[in-house]
Design a protein around this nucleic acid. Sequence first.
DNA 1: TATTGTTATACTCTATAACTATA
DNA 2: TATAGTTATAGAGTATAACAATA
Lengths: 148, 148
Amino acid sequence: MATPRTDPLTVEVVELIGTVVARYYAEYEQAAAKHSLTGAQARVLSLLTLEPTPMRRIAQKLKCEPSNVTGIIDRLEARGLVERRPDPNDRRVKLAAPTEDGRVTARRLRESLDFAREPLAELSDEERTVLRDLLKRMLGKEAPVAAR
Amino acid sequence: MATPRTDPLTVEVVELIGTVVARYYAEYEQAAAKHSLTGAQARVLSLLTLEPTPMRRIAQKLKCEPSNVTGIIDRLEARGLVERRPDPNDRRVKLAAPTEDGRVTARRLRESLDFAREPLAELSDEERTVLRDLLKRMLGKEAPVAAR
DNA sequence: TATTGTTATACTCTATAACTATA
DNA sequence: TATAGTTATAGAGTATAACAATA
């Protein structure tokens, strides 16, 4: 417990996480490219399938400046994957929403990503449960210490 | 076992991994920015501290085209963090190597990243061991199934 | 001929600042 | 006056294609 920083075990785990991050990231970009999308475009399109979203909100999700979102949505809109709608409650706001075409692309993208999830196939259900709880704890989601 | 794809547990773990990836990536960029480096520059500089590296090899490590490396090294060189050296064995090759300044910056960057490792402090030694072995299995490194 | 690194070009993402239309 | 979205601008990373030097 205490303050683990540079002990060999921690260093090893950190390196493994780094490897997972690099692989996951690369495969995400690759899956996006397969659908002629950039990583940012793919992330936004996926986000929009949850619900029509104000430009400002998209920027917050992407952790970038709102001005960047204009261009990303422009390009998705030019390809007919997304459309801008007025917000009935506030005429300053524009809601970005996927078109039918956009939904299809987003679904295919999601399926491509299943392929990126292959590594989990190596683990049994029990192991996945343990992994889930450890990751939750790491992320401060306070999963119970004992298996549930 | 079999072919786990869309069962709730797998989906949950995939989402958690996605969260870890996003957080790790964001904190890496942030740590790099703290030293006025972009993510790509930080990755290259870190790489070079292992050994002087041909431009071509850097491109392979970064999974990008060699032409891009020229610019990244240009900018690191302009800041005095990296230098280009001839390769004694092949006069076509240029080896990129960190300057003393570059080594100092790389070390500080590494220390900043320790901060990004904080989440692991939530776990005990035993839990870190379990996590290590699960990650290894995921990455196809074939760690023993039983704890070692 | 093949390979290494570079240059030139074009596109995307990024932050900053200034602008507009609403609120 | 404050906020949402946009435009304008500049810097960085990216891929492609063409090039010079060397193998």
